[in-house]
Design a protein around this nucleic acid. Structure first.
Length: 881
RNA sequence: GGGCGCGUAGCUCAGCGGGAGAGCACUACGUUGACAUCGUAGGGGUCACUGGUUCAAUCCCAGUCGCGCCCACCA
């Protein structure tokens, strides 16, 4: 017997354990069934489940459960990512709290510490995924630093190196002076900041008394200037090109060059060039052969290349001193307020310093070609498709990918240096040693590269490294390429594009056929959630308060394509109510002895109401199937909501209550049908609301029917379709709704019974009304039916499918109110009629509109005009009272 | 500066060339044997603005205004 109310907390843990034990989550590489694969984007080991994860994993789980029910051999590959920088920040903070530092522990000590921490808390996210009801194949859980994945990383690195697609280069990089590591362009976040524009006068060396004024937002970098650029066509500076300025404070001579980059309209028209500390200047310097003068150390403090007074100052202190000194020297022309974009490290928040270093690079341009082609020719499809443009834009101007990081936690780069600096790239130290011995003729001691790889390097291999690559495992050939990748747009470049590049290069095939991009979750006011704003929503809290199914349903219902998800808690509450409604419907069925009947099919039903609900359920199921196939989770959710609440509970259950009180074959049929419909409902709802549906199913189904988790998705057979029954019941629903509206309009007390007068009724309709007389009596509280020719005084009418229903209650009518309503209604119909008439009198319309449209408009004109005339009659009679 | 998206009921959003929709919120009434986490009904919108295309525009096109996001070396 089902409990009085649904208790999610009591059900969820128990149900999940049963599913997991059943083996229903596991992929079956040996099965005959067609595979369906989703690679779970591996969450960071540092992570705890936030609402964005909840959306992402819910959508994947909906797909996975749906496809499992459709008979596919599903592999949903779970795992987690070592997340180099994020993890170092988390563990670094712990060390700070303990009064120690990463460097104090040393490399081995620190890495051991991170592993220990990973073992202790890395499972949190997996636990939280279970709370969400996610059904991946846990037996295949992977970590991006597992031995197998690590060897795949080394294999790939070595191969790309040998192909010339990985190389070392000295370039200007984005340097985090606090963490002492390079980061990629993608990890840089520009933040709008209020700053100043300093105009500094540089004396021209050859022309005493002449100055060139340059404008800069970063005066401290002037100490690293190696040139001043002006526009070639700028008359103000024409005579200065080729001369030089004496750089103040540093007392160096630097050339004045002509370069189109200098915009005469901007600043002072002349721009200082600091090739070692600015990306644009780096390019200009390269064009003109300017010297690179690095004035910062790894902490972004001024080094020995700077004049003595500034050495050791950090960049912000140096700025103050430079400005003060320039001002004292009378060389500061003016200072303007200026808003600019300052690059920050998106993880640490530190202001990025462009810095010149040697790093490892991957030739992304070469790898991007096949990835671009795969999207262009449709082998990979983005859903929604507008993301393809974003993808194309980035891929077509892709820059070399800096893959080295000066961190300790991660895949250490498999490269060794000989005593003379010769590089040996190999998968193992032994191999490197062999190569070294071959070169040097005897054993030498090698020094391993200190750097680790960008975390995204190993993530890029995820779709095949988790399946055993480079071994030719059965899994690899069966589950690659995967079917769909579900992710949000913010990692299209970080991850999606790189998986394509690596997958195409090493597997020769796309890693996935579809990329479903879902939106970001925002708070109810549309703001991005962040800890600093304090507007984060904890999905686990919502699960505790409303149940997992309610949260999942909410997320699915909000996941419309191309739109951000604004999550209001009231929404979750509403869907919790929906779960309760479903639960009570199941209880109702149980109390009325509605049990599944073996061999029952809806086609056997004789009762119109049962034939109707079978048709409606079939339509709903077909629509839900289509919606899920199209990744329209919102549509699937809304269809189910409407069917369960609006159709099944509000109408079918109410219609059949009297039948279930009876005692004949109609009751048996209706019991069977009620149970059958409920079974259909829990099947269709299971992907979105797995827990409550399984709980209901276990109560409804026979023991041998097994878990809903692995039950077959309902097939919708056309023989269950009965359009006539459908139309008839829809008419009854409309008629009863109309009568209810009339009652309210006339202020008839709910308990009062009223006569229903029927005008202009055809025999078939009269029969129909007679067939459903009990429904009218019960649900509309009508006590008798009378055919009439004219609308009586005090009568009020509604038109349903061409039949006029009139409620007549004499003096109960609130006359004034009714007159006003009728007047308004007539006015509305009149204006509508004018619109249609204008259309129908328009020769162009008659000539150019499709015939069926014209026909439709004619019918409509007839309908509306008939309605209007009837209302007018009623109005006139009302006025006469 | 470039690109993408969005402005539809108080809120969150569907719809999209020929009749303005849902849920929530609001109002009124209701303890009918599944359900008050409920039921029945109701009010509420020149579909941002302006032009254009069309027989017909909330829907297509262009522009304007407002909002959001992404990318970018403008000192």
């Amino acid at each position: 017997m089902l409990d009085k109310t649904y208790q999610p907390a009591a059900v969820e843990g128990r149900r999940y354990a049963v599913w997991e034990r059943s083996g229903g989550f596991a992929a079956e590489p040996n099965s005959e069934r067609r595979p369906y694969t989703i690679m779970m984007p591996p969450p960071n080991v540092t992570g705890s489940l936030h609402i964005g994860h909840a959306l992402n994993f819910t959508l994947q789980d909906v797909l996975v459960r749906y496809q499992r029910m459709r008979g596919r051999d599903v592999l949903w590959q779970p795992g987690s990512d070592h997340a180099g920088i994020a993890t170092e920040i988390v563990v670094g903070n712990q060390l700070t709290a303990e009064g120690t530092t990463k460097r104090a522990l040393g490399r081995d000590g620190f890495v051991a510490r991170v592993w220990k921490w990973k073992e202790e808390s890395g499972g949190a996210i997996a636990h939280q995924l279970r709370r969400l009801g996610a059904s991946p194949d846990w037996s295949r859980e992977r970590f991006t630093m597992d031995p197998g994945l690590a060897s795949a990383v080394r294999r790939i690195f070595v191969q790309l190196y040998r192909e010339g697609l990985i190389y070392r280069d000295k370039r200007l990089v984005n340097w985090d002076p606090a963490m002492h590591t390079v980061i990629s362009d993608l990890e840089v976040q520009s933040r709008e900041t209020k700053g100043s524009l300093w105009h500094i006068r540089y004396p021209v060396a050859e022309l005493p008394g002449r100055f060139v004024t340059v404008a800069t937002t970063r005066p401290e970098t002037m100490l690293g200037d190696t040139g001043v650029a002006v526009h070639p066509n700028d008359p103000r500076f024409a005579d200065l090109v080729g001369k030089s300025v004496r750089l103040p404070l540093a007392d160096r001579l630097i050339p004045i060059i002509a370069d189109a980059h200098a915009d005469p309209e901007t600043g002072s028209g002349a721009v200082k060039i600091t090739p070692a500390h600015d990306f644009a200047d780096f390019e200009i310097g390269r064009r003109h052969g300017l010297a690179l003068l690095n004035i910062f150390d790894q902490d972004a403090r001024l080094n020995d290349a700077a004049p003595a007074p500034y050495r050791g100052l950090d960049r912000f202190a140096a700025r103050e001193k430079v400005v003060a000194d320039l001002s004292a020297a009378g060389l500061l022309d003016k200072v303007e307020d200026h808003t600019l974009m300052i690059p920050h490290h998106d993880r640490s928040g530190e202001v990025i310093e462009p810095w010149l270093t040697d790093q490892w690079y991957c030739d992304a341009r070469v790898l991007a070609g096949p990835a671009l082609a795969a999207v262009e020719d449709g082998r990979i499809r983005f859903v929604p498709s507008q993301w393809e443009n974003t993808f194309f834009d980035w891929m077509r101007k892709i820059q070399p990918w800096c893959i080295s990081r000066q961190l300790w936690w991660g895949h250490r780069i498999p490269a060794w240096y000989g005593p003379d600096g010769t590089l040996f790239v190999a998968e193992t130290v032994e191999e490197a040693q062999r190569e070294a011995s071959a070169k040097y003729g005897d054993a030498v001691s090698l020094r391993r590269d200190e750097d680790v790889l960008d975390t995204w390097f190993s993530s890029a291999l995820w779709p095949f490294s988790t399946l055993g690559w480079p071994e030719e495992t059965p899994e690899l050939s069966r589950y690659y390429p995967t079917d769909v990748l579900v992710t949000s747009f913010d990692i299209i470049f970080f991850w999606v594009a790189r998986m394509m590049m690596m997958g195409l290069h090493f597997m020769g095939e796309v890693p996935f056929r579809t990329v479903y991009i879902h939106a970001l979750v925002r708070d109810e006011r549309g703001q991005k959630m962040s800890k600093s704003r304090g507007n984060t929503i904890d999905p686990l809290g919502l699960i505790e308060r409303y149940g997992c199914d309610a949260l999942r349903f909410t997320l699915a219902a909000l996941a419309a394509p191309g739109r951000d998800v604004k999550l209001a808690e009231s929404r979750v509450e509403g869907y919790r109510n929906f779960a309760t409604k479903l639960w009570n419907a199941a209880r109702y069925a149980e109390m009325n002895v509605c049990a599944l009947v073996a061999d029952f099919t809806p086609a056997q039903c004789r009762l119109t109401v049962n034939r109707w609900i079978a048709t409606a359920a079939s339509d709903c199921g077909a629509a839900v199937t289509a919606a899920l196939d199209a990744y329209r989770f919102d549509e699937a959710a809304s269809l189910l909501y409407q069917f369960v609440w609006g159709t099944f509970c509000d109408w079918y259950v109410e219609f059949t209550k009297p039948i279930l009180q009876g005692d004949d074959s109609a009751r048996a049929e209706t019991r069977a049908m009620t149970a059958w419909i409920l079974g259909r409902i829990v099947h269709l709802l299971h992907p979105i609301m797995p827990f409550i549906t399984e709980e209901i199913w276990q109560n409804l189904a026979r023991e041998d029917e097994g878990l809903l988790l692995t039950a077959p998705w309902p097939e919708f057979s056309p023989e269950a379709h009965d359009l006539a029954a459908s139309a008839e019941m829809e008419w009854v629903v409309q008629a009863i709704s109309a009568i209810r509206a009339l009652r309210a309009e006339m202020n008839i007390p709910p308990a009062a019974r009223v006569p229903l007068l029927i005008k202009d009724v055809e025999p078939a309709v009269a029969e129909r009304i007679e067939r459903h007389r009990e429904h009218f009596m019960r649900l509309a509280r009508v006590d008798r039916f009378e055919p009439v020719v004219t609308v009586p005084a005090g009568g009020i009418q509604a038109v349903v499918g061409g039949t006029v229903l009139i409620l007549s209650v004499g003096d109960v009518v609130d006359l004034a109110r009714e007159k006003a309503r009728l007047g308004k209604e007539i006015e509305r119909l009149d204006s509508e009629l004018r619109k249609i008439a204008a259309k129908l009198n328009n020769p162009n319309f008659l000539a150019k509109a499709k015939p069926e449209i014209v026909e439709e408009q004619r019918d409509r004109e007839a309908d509306v005009s008939r309605d209007r005339d009837r209302l007018k009659v009623a109005y006139a009679r009302l006025m006469a009272i």
